[in-house]
Design a binder for these strands. Structure first.
Lengths: 194, 194
DNA sequence: CGAGACATGTAACCTGTTACATGATTCC
DNA sequence: GGAATCATGTAACAGGTTACATGTCTCG
């Protein structure tokens, strides 16, 4: 259902086409949620069926026709109810962490390479976040300072989480580098205790 | 495909039934991946079809019959190839962060409640992690110290990430509490810049 | 002349969730 | 007597991915 709320949230600003929403997503929402084109279009139809949005067809010359979606009062109510609803279980499925769980199977050198790749990835994510924050700085000069209050804090929070992960990865790397000969054990046979 | 590798990883220690695997998952793998019973059994069948595991039926008195799965050489090769394969895109779908993205729609008081709930959740996760680390401490006294090398570091890493998130949440809370009257803006209409 | 913006979809498939079914044994 | 453990599944549905189809205009 989260996609539905993401779409409602974007549509809360103004009437948009599926294509507009997609662009908005790519620019702004991408780092907390995303969806393929086909899933977005499918979901929009479903939301219209359920009365959360309405649509009208707009004919265009020189461009393909488009369908503009607008949120209904029911949609607005649904979004606002979700925003203050109890948190769903915060259960992460992280393929990277899953990999580390079984890393004892590969050589320390191979493990190092995986960690280094993740380190580079995190560096890149952090850099992107910092760029975004700078752009925001410019924005708040020309406009009201409290524009995008939550968005700015969100990017900042993610930056901090990425930095925490990166520090951890770097420590793991130096542990691996300093003791390349130590034996490293895998799993307990009964999965006991951990 | 990640579930498949998680199952292969667990089966790399010994022959197990679907039920054993489930127990192992709940105890040990749960915090980086999980799956429902029915998905697990379905996936095991698929893995057998694809030659990654073999199974044999074991008849039991007083207990239901069971099917024991064992990894094949092909399965072992598949797992090891995955462990050193390039990282997939690390793209998070986080319903909590998605919520925050649209939080400007609700009152600061309601937002505070959401953040407090998350704070409690994180506190609980951190406590669980610390418990696990203690259990590990006991374990390494009785056994070889390098038992579960990766598992321990993994739990420690997650603890640190949770703590980073919690610090951020707490700062947000104090920002909200200290300026309850400030106007907070929502989204830009064109999703510009952020 | 080719790439990219504009614009919406279908079909097939894979992944994940929920509800249900079955039935003996053991422990409180 | 009721709950938990052991043990494996089916059926239906929801959520998500990938590949493909279509066609014009604009810009470099």
């Amino acid at each position: 259902m989260a996609l539905r709320y993401a779409l409602l949230g974007v549509l809360s600003t103004r009437e948009m086409s599926g294509y507009d929403i997609k662009r908005y997503f790519d620019r702004a929402v991408h780092f907390v949620w995303n969806a393929s084109d086909s899933q977005t279009y499918r979901e929009l139809r479903g939301m219209e069926r359920d009365g959360l949005i309405t649509s009208r067809l707009v004919h265009q010359e020189a461009k393909p026709n488009k369908r503009l979606y607008r949120m209904t009062d029911a949609g607005r109510a649904e979004l606002d109810a979700w925003l203050i609803s109890p948190l769903e279980t915060p259960y992460r499925k992280d393929p990277f962490l899953l990999r580390l769980f079984f890393m004892a199977r590969v050589s320390p050198v191979a493990a190092q390479q995986i960690l280094e790749a993740r380190h580079e990835e995190l560096r890149a994510l952090i850099a992107v976040g910092e760029e975004r924050l700078e752009t925001y700085g410019d924005l708040s000069k020309s406009s009201r300072p409290e524009r995008l209050w939550w968005q700015v804090r969100l990017i900042n929070g993610m930056r901090r989480m990425h930095m925490a992960e990166d520090e951890w990865i770097c420590e793991l790397l130096s542990e691996l580098r300093s003791s390349p000969e130590e034996p490293i054990d895998g799993l307990l046979e009964d999965g006991a205790a951990i």
